[in-house]
C-alpha cells in the first residue's frame, strides 16, 4: 500500500532480512516437509494397492463377496469371504471382551490403588515384557496350553489376541488416568464421596474417550494378527458360528492362505479379503469414535 519511494528513513524497516538463521530455518522446513512425504508414501502406496486390486474383487456382484462361503477348491474363481468376516468379528470381539475389562481394571489398580508398591511395579514390568513378546510366540503358547487340549476354535484365537491386547490396553488406560486432572478427584472427595465411587463416577468417565481410543488401537492391531491365529483357529471354509467348537477362520488367515496360493483366483480373493479387513477396521473405529463422541457430548 505504501509506495516504497515515499518511505522515509524515519520509518522502521520491518522487512524480513536474509541471514544465516533464515537460511537454516528454510532448510529445516524443507527437510521436515520431505520427511512427512516419505512417511506418508508407504501408507498411500499400501492403500493404493489394496483398493486398486481389491475393489474389483470385493464389490463384483455386491454383496456376494461379503456373504458367500469360501470356495473349498482354491483354484475355482468367485466369491466370497463371509465365514472369514464372521470369524474375525468373533475372534477379535471375544478377545476385546476379555482384554478390555481386565486391562482397564488392572490400570485402575496400578494408577489409583497400588501407587509405588512392589506388586504394582511387578505387574507394570510384566505388562511391558508382554508388549515385547512376538505374536507367534504367544500363538505357540496358546497352542500348547489350549489348542492341544481342546482343539481348534475361535476362542483359542481370542485368548491369544487377548494376551497381545492386554498390555496395550493397560498402558493406554494408565496414560489416560494420569491425564485426569487431580482437582476433579479432590472436588469429588470434598463432597464426601468414597474413593471407589470417585473412580467410577468421575475418573473413568473423564478418561473414557482416551480409554476407547487406546482399546481401539489394540483391537485394530489384533484384527490383523495372523500368526497366533494360525495355531489356534484353523482355516475353515464354511460358516462356524460356534465360539468354542470346531475350526474357524479369519480374514488374516485367508489373506495368508490365498496370497501364497499359486492360483490366480485365490490370489484375487486375498486382495478382496485385504480390502475387507481394512474396511472392517475402519468401520469399527468410526462407530466407536461416534459412540464416544455421543457420550462425551452428553456430559
Amino acid at each position: 500500500m505504501i509506495d516504497l519511494a515515499e518511505v522515509t528513513s524515519a520509518q522502521p524497516d520491518l522487512s524480513a532480512k536474509r541471514s544465516w538463521r533464515s537460511v537454516k530455518s528454510t532448510t529445516m522446513t524443507g527437510l521436515m516437509i520431505a520427511s512427512v512425504v516419505l512417511v506418508a508414501l508407504p501408507l498411500i502406496a499400501v492403500v493404493w494397492a489394496i483398493f486398486g486390486r481389491g475393489v474389483a474383487v470385493a464389490f463384483h456382484g455386491f454383496p456376494d463377496f461379503f456373504i458367500k462361503e469360501i470356495p473349498s477348491v482354491a483354484r475355482r474363481a468367485g466369491p466370497g469371504m463371509g465365514p472369514a468376516i464372521l470369524g474375525t468379528l468373533m475372534v477379535t470381539g471375544a478377545a476385546t471382551l476379555i482384554a478390555v475389562p481386565l486391562g482397564v481394571l488392572g490400570a485402575v489398580y496400578l494408577h489409583e490403588y497400588g501407587v509405588g508398591n512392589r506388586f504394582s511395579r511387578l505387574v507394570r514390568f510384566m505388562a511391558t515384557v508382554m508388549t515385547g513378546v512376538p505374536s507367534i510366540v504367544m500363538g505357540l503358547f496358546i497352542y500348547v496350553v489350549w489348542t492341544l487340549h481342546f482343539g481348534y476354535s475361535a476362542f483359542g484365537g481370542s485368548l491369544a489376541l487377548a494376551c497381545l491386547m492386554l498390555p496395550v490396553v493397560i498402558g493406554a488406560t494408565e496414560q489416560m488416568l494420569k491425564l485426569v486432572p487431580n482437582h476433579l478427584r479432590e472436588a469429588s472427595y470434598a463432597l464426601g464421596t468414597s474413593k471407589s465411587r470417585t473412580i467410577l463416577t468421575v475418573v473413568l468417565p473423564a478418561a473414557l474417550p482416551g480409554i476407547v481410543s487406546g482399546s481401539l488401537l489394540a483391537v485394530a492391531r489384533a484384527a490383523g494378527e495372523t500368526a497366533p491365529l494360525l495355531f489356534a483357529v484353523g482355516a475353515a471354509t464354511e460358516y462356524n458360528p460356534h465360539l468354542f467348537e470346531e475350526a474357524n477362520t479369519a480374514l488374516s488367515i485367508q489373506i495368508f492362505g490365498n496370497a501364497t496360493s499359486s492360483f490366480v483366483a485365490a490370489q484375487d480373493r486375498a486382495w478382496g479379503a485385504a480390502l475387507t479387513l481394512v474396511l472392517l477396521t475402519f468401520i469399527i473405529t468410526l462407530v466407536a469414535r461416534v459412540f464416544t463422541a455421543r457420550i462425551a457430548s452428553r456430559r
Partner: peptide, 19 residues
Amino acid sequence: TEVRRRIGMVFQKPNPFPK
C-alpha cells in the same frame, strides 16, 4: 468420607465436573 460430608470445601479454581 463421613468428615467431608459434614465439612465441605470450595476450591481456589472453580472445578465443576465435566457433567
